[in-house]
């Protein structure tokens, strides 16, 4: 094995972890998490740019969010940003989120609700984008609210599709 070197040969053939796989794995670790997938007829760069304009995209797509404000943005390097934002329901209930944003991946964590967004070019069709969204509540409530979360996340993914078509 000296020609290959100890362990170095595994670098040559290392697989990769896609942002989509990362989101699906996180969903598997949260009891009751809702997951929905869709393919949008736009290139990845455009989908991701528009979805991560949170102040516009989220209130347009999510019926439970009436307004959203980005409070703070901070670059962490390697294309990673930490964002703090505040969302209000249409009835005025407020929740703050800590966000980790990377190219193709976003995790929004709030005290009562978590949203994971992931996107990647559709294999073999770069004009389209595969999108995965996960929504979850704290683990002890997850199983109870699982049916509601499944319906909600499906509605939000459809909402993003409408938003992307309209803008």
């Amino acid at each position: 094995m000296t020609a290959l070197g100890r362990a170095r040969w595994t670098d040559e053939v290392a697989a990769s972890l896609s942002t989509l796989a990362r989101a699906r794995a996180i969903a598997a670790g949260i009891p009751g998490a809702g997951v929905a997938e869709a393919v949008y007829d736009l290139p990845f760069s455009e989908v991701w740019r528009r979805l991560t304009e949170f102040e516009r995209s989220v209130p347009n797509a999510d019926r439970l969010v009436g307004r959203l404000r980005v409070d703070h943005r901070e670059a962490l390097g390697d294309g990673v940003e930490r964002i703090r934002l505040t969302a209000w329901t249409p009835l005025g209930l407020r929740q703050r989120f800590d966000v980790r944003l990377e190219p193709g991946f976003c995790l929004m964590g709030g005290r009562a609700y978590t949203v994971v967004m992931a996107a990647a070019p559709e294999p073999g069709d770069p004009a389209r984008t595969r999108y995965v969204q996960v929504e979850a509540v704290p683990a002890h409530l997850g199983r109870l609210l699982a049916p509601l979360l499944r319906a909600t996340v499906r509605g939000d993914v459809r909402g993003f599709a409408r938003y992307l078509r309209s803008s």
């Binding site: 053939v13 290392a14 697989a15 990769s16 972890l17 896609s18 796989a21 990362r22 699906r24 794995a25 996180i26 598997a28 670790g29």
Partner: peptide, 15 residues
């Protein structure tokens, strides 16, 4: 099939 195996591994680990 490495990418598939990575996804299946992480799903099994976190589940």
């Amino acid at each position: 099939r490495g990418d598939d195996a990575v996804q299946e591994t992480f799903i099994a680990v976190l589940r």
